[in-house]
Simulated scan of single mutants.
Amino acid sequence: MNYATSLPWTLESLDFSRIDIQRVRQNEELFFLLCSASFVESGSDLYTHNLVDHFAGDQELQTWLSQHWEHEELQHGRALAGYVKAVWPEFDWERGFQAFWDEYGAMCTNEQLETSRGLELAARCVVETGTASLYRALNDITDEPVLKQLTHHIKSDEVRHFKHFYQHFRLYREREGFGRYKVFRAILRRVNEIKAEDGDIALRHVFNQCYPDQKDDDTAFRRVAERAHALLRRNIPAEMTVKMLLRPLDLPPRLQKAVEKPLAKIAEKLFLN
């Protein structure tokens, strides 16, 4: 099968030669966010293999993961890496990614997944919520046309991925019979993992590559990371984030409406340190 023909968009549709470099070149916070995202997305083949193993016997989900989700996620990584290389050619992306993957790849094991398949799908909804919110925020942050196009494509992909995981979550919820409390615990665990691992590790390796003389200076790293986090906090789509996070809990409409606004006020804390 030619997977490129089934992709919603292709790398070739992005014309990196049309990037208005001066609109983004001096924005270090944006560079850190884009580069760290490119690192995480570029490891999607390992995430996929772990999930395919976890859902052994579920041919429909395995096929979607390996023949669609993986290829779309890897395209995100290639597109983001290509953009970073075009705007910041002095940054050694391959070296930075290898250092990141040596650390992070070793942590991506099946043991990290929820033992319940249904609860793992709830956790996947959390991850897709985080990425959809990230790229929506990046899209709002930038006025550079090519990056605007790229982040719109990725955000749309992540929302669609969320819907697919959510559909399968509902099937497994019926099969496994777990309640809201277990779903809530699974959501909370994955939110905490995202905060503690993914973004922080990726940002740190971007920092190490940019500032090798400050590699062990945690204060200097935190200062740079906080500026990047602050940029996201100012642009995080809080309402969208909360609605997506609450979806697997399947709350009664009145309760859902009652908790959305209070949670929206603290939505940035769910994914940002």
Rank of each mutant, 00 (worst) to 15 (best):
Gln112Lys: 10
Phe32Ile: 08
Ala225Asp: 03
Arg189Phe: 12
Ile19Phe: 05
Leu263Asp: 10
Asn50Tyr: 06
His76Thr: 02
Phe16His: 04
Val191Ser: 06
Trp64Met: 05
Asn235Val: 00
His49Asp: 11
Leu14Arg: 04
Glu72Tyr: 01
Leu150Gln: 00
Gly177Thr: 10
Asn27Asp: 15
Arg247Gln: 12
Val52Glu: 02
Met244Gln: 08
His153Asp: 08
Ala122Asn: 01
Gly199Pro: 02
Glu120Arg: 13
Val206Asp: 04
Asn110Trp: 10
His229Leu: 05
Ala132Leu: 08
Asn192Glu: 13
Leu232Glu: 09
Asn139Ser: 15
Phe100Cys: 00
His205Val: 06
Asn110His: 09
Cys125Phe: 08
Tyr3Arg: 10
Arg234Cys: 07
Phe97Ile: 01
Ser44His: 01
Gly199Lys: 01
Pro145Tyr: 07
Ala4Phe: 07
Gln22Ala: 13
Ile21Arg: 15
Val87Asp: 05
Ala122Cys: 13
Leu255Met: 15
Thr219Gly: 11
Phe39Ala: 05
Lys269Ala: 10
Ile154Leu: 12
Lys261Trp: 13
Glu144Asp: 05
Leu272Ile: 11
Gly82His: 04
Asn2Leu: 10
Phe39Thr: 02
Asp58Phe: 03
Pro252Lys: 14
Ser42Cys: 02
Leu249Ala: 07
Asn50Trp: 11
Phe271Lys: 08
Asn50Gln: 11
Phe97Asn: 08
Thr241Ala: 09
Val191Ile: 15
His76Val: 04
Thr129Met: 09
Tyr83Lys: 05
Glu193Trp: 08
Gln256Leu: 15
Arg180Gln: 15
Pro8Gln: 07
Ala264His: 14
Ser116Arg: 08
Gln149Arg: 14
Phe169Gly: 00
Pro212Asn: 04
Gln75Tyr: 03
Pro248Glu: 10
Ser6Asp: 11
Leu249Met: 03
Asp102Asn: 07
Glu103Thr: 10
Thr48Trp: 00
Gln214Ser: 08
